[in-house]
């Protein structure tokens, strides 16, 4: 029963990683850049939700919508101002710019909200469910997180396979030049990707802070790195891969904390990542592309 409890908790934290990883993977797949500022957008989303519920007194549902709206705008703005001018330059230049944006967001948040941690009240009104005579506790947050991640993944998969914009996204990720020749606006498609990724980051931020209730300017950094490894783990660029990678990473993390060692959980998580990459260099569900000479 204990194992089942850990499994559920692991899936829950993994689902949050998965939602963040989806944003990473989409941006990487389409813009071919590592958006290191993604983790900080999570933090901004959580702060917006916090402000809307605590200062304006609006219901939780509205706060999530507001967080999504602000993060979407922020994502598009960052892309237009910082990343778009650098399109076609070496990926390292874009990477460093993304790091600059990340510093900017963290320190901006510190200026606005201060560095003292805020106590984030969970936005999930559901009561915990007790199963097996109280041995198994499933909190409302766990249910909502898992449901949300499943919905998001299904939604994204449908979006990328059925809609015109989604198909354009896949075309751009496959071959940017060819997509442009087919009349797809690459800039709009990339902006769209950032918008979706940032909206997802806002949801992830609210869910993350509902589970782990402290909120400070550096809140997004570590989950961001974890989610990035999750995206690589599952095969970067692949939507089901990000989902699988996130959930596996969450399970591995919870289990290693529970059964092996709390202190070394980071080391264990990253070791598993390395082993996976050695066996399958493109990640679990990634496509292995043959190099052409």
């Amino acid at each position: 029963m204990q194992i089942l409890q850990y499994l559920i908790n692991g899936i829950s934290i993994g689902a949050v990683y998965a939602i963040i990883a989806l944003g990473y993977t989409m941006v990487y797949g389409i813009a071919k850049m590592l958006n290191f500022a993604h983790g900080d957008i999570i933090m901004v989303g959580a702060y917006i939700s916090f402000c809307v519920t605590n200062y304006l007194g609006l219901p939780a549902f509205v706060s999530v919508i507001a967080a999504m709206a602000v993060c979407t705008l922020l994502g598009i703005l960052i892309e237009k101002l910082a990343y778009m001018p650098l399109r076609g330059t070496p990926s390292l230049a874009v990477l460093i710019t993304a790091i600059g944006v990340s510093y900017f967001l963290q320190n901006g948040a510190q200026l606005i909200w201060g560095s003292a941690p805020k106590n984030f009240a969970s936005i999930v009104p559901l009561k915990p469910v007790f199963l097996a005579g109280g041995e198994l506790v499933i909190t409302g947050e766990v249910i909502v997180t898992i449901l949300a991640s499943v919905l998001i993944m299904v939604g994204l998969t449908l979006f990328t396979t059925k809609t015109k914009i989604g198909k354009a996204m896949r075309a751009v990720s496959e071959d940017r030049a060819a997509a442009q020749l087919m009349g797809i606006s690459v800039n709009n498609t990339i902006s769209m990707t950032f918008a979706i990724g940032s909206a997802l980051a806002a949801i992830a931020g609210v869910l993350l802070c509902s589970t782990v209730p402290t909120l400070q300017p550096t809140t997004g950094a570590m989950p961001g790195i974890r989610a990035f490894t999750a995206a690589v783990f599952g095969g970067i660029g692949s939507i089901p891969g990000a989902m699988l990678g996130g959930i596996l990473l969450g399970i591995i993390e919870t289990f290693s904390k529970a059964f092996i060692s709390t202190q070394f959980s980071d080391a264990i998580v990253f070791s598993v990542l390395i082993i996976i990459l050695l066996v399958k260099p493109a990640g679990l569900l990634g496509k292995q592309i043959q190099e052409k000479v």
């Binding site: 990487y28 990926s91 490894t229 202190q263 070394f264 980071d266 990253f270 990542l273 260099p281």
Partner: peptide, 27 residues
């Protein structure tokens, strides 16, 4: 192990190793 990989994968694995080293040294 690391040098079998390339590009962004190499980057992520060096990141992972950096965290592992920090984790071990810190305990």
């Amino acid at each position: 192990p690391v040098l079998r990989l390339r590009g962004d994968y190499l980057a992520i694995v060096t990141l992972a190793f950096g965290e592992i080293l920090k984790n071990i040294v810190g305990n």
